[in-house]
Design a binder for these strands. Structure first.
Lengths: 228, 228
DNA sequence: CGCACTGTTGACGGTCCTCAAAACCAGTGG
DNA sequence: CCACTGGTTTTGAGGACCGTCAACAGTGCG
């Protein structure tokens, strides 16, 4: 019985490439069988708040969400964006350590943590899924920290574009659902810097922008060269 | 049976304040009963390497270690320092995502992951300990990311000094076992900036330095005021 | 049209990185 | 004891990068 603590190869191959959906077989099943109706949330609405008692875990059905924390000086640190199939609130303690907010209109399904714990107690594979989803989140957090620690504005923006494109499966064209401010708070930059950097990337022909949120990746190779 | 997934209040109260030893009752016991002799590692020696198969979990008995990853451009990102009583390698996938290296001469005890998994399968409290230790590491990683994203050099250094003092239980005087370069790679700064910031803090009377690694916190209040 | 909001652009200044050199420290060997 | 060596730490000067302030453009909506 070593399954619970040892990750399956698939979920552990690569830091930031681990999507929560890679490790959802049992976890998805638990949601599917929970009989809970999906909840609609409008853009800007919160699903749960930092500091609230963490009674539920959520799965994104539709739309895009983001999770953030407010810092002491009133600034906001966006921790991650969450796409359909991914989970929210898994790695909370008794309280949520993050606020989860809808970026676009979205649909989420809730599952009680007590119920999930009961299920996990009888199902080693579910326990393993929970474990691997949490480990994935942890490793993504470290990738993020590494970017924030050392990369320049251009590198951060390029890394973000590529990473987001990969996550939504976009090859050339994509829609960025989040505002410039959201991107800035995710990348640890000022909104002006994000904007400037994007126009600069466009001037250099690495990307093309139909509108401010419609981006086409023109030179993926050169963008990748910017992400060491 | 909701114990495995729900954290006990003690372990979840505060992000960066969660020391691994807060959540070790069963986990420590597992190590104590493992009959494995402690391994000595000299300063600078590695306990495990990024990319290696993660077959063991370690507990620090003596000394200080640090974990880091190498970035694409050859830079090093120190993820954390590890004090006696804390665990290493818990949150690994099949491979370690970090390299663990001794900062000072140290003693660690190893425990096989397969063995730990076997124990955890029969012991809900142990499973909960594993969970809460991992969640703790995740939340510390996010605290760290927030600092890297937004704080100035002075704020980073002040936060580091206070956080390290708290972890080792120092009130006024403390010895920093790590080099300036280690601190710099942890804080996402150049070594020169760390050095300059420390001399500046000393000039302002917030700290006093007997030697470069012997620091006394003179004005804890003003240091804390620097950490928003 | 006016208004509110989001995004872009320019000018300027501060912070922190880079480059370079000096001071300090521990250990080694003459 | 002193000179020499390799390492770490400190200090200085200069400049790039990015945040701040300010103004302007674009968009959607009443």
């Amino acid at each position: 019985m070593n399954a619970a603590f040892t990750l399956p190869p698939a979920a552990a191959t690569a830091g930031s490439a681990v999507s929560a959906s890679d490790a959802c077989c049992r976890l998805c099943k638990a949601f599917a069988e929970s009989q809970t109706a999906a909840t609609r949330v409008g853009a800007g609405e919160e699903v749960f708040l930092e500091g609230e008692e963490a009674d539920f875990v959520y799965r994104v059905e539709e739309g895009v969400l983001m999770s953030y924390r407010m810092l002491g000086d009133g600034r906001r640190q966006v921790v991650d964006f969450h796409l359909p199939g991914e989970f929210l609130g898994l790695e909370a303690g008794v309280e949520y350590s993050l606020t989860a907010q809808a970026v676009t209109p979205a649909k989420v399904v809730a599952l009680g943590r007590r119920r999930l714990a009961t299920l996990a107690a009888d199902d080693v594979r579910l326990t393993r899924d929970l474990w691997s989803a949490t480990v994935g989140a942890y490793q993504r957090s470290q990738d993020h920290a590494a970017i924030l620690a050392r990369q320049s504005a251009t590198e951060r923006v390029a890394a973000f574009l590529l990473s987001y494109a990969r996550r939504i499966g976009a090859v050339r064209d994509m829609t960025l659902p989040m505002s410039r401010q959201d991107m800035a708070d995710f990348l640890g930059l000022a909104i002006h810097t994000v904007s400037r950097t994007l126009t600069h990337l466009e001037a250099d022909g690495l990307i093309a922008a139909r509108s401010s949120r419609q981006v086409r990746l023109m030179r993926r190779d050169r963008l990748m060269a910017l992400c060491p």
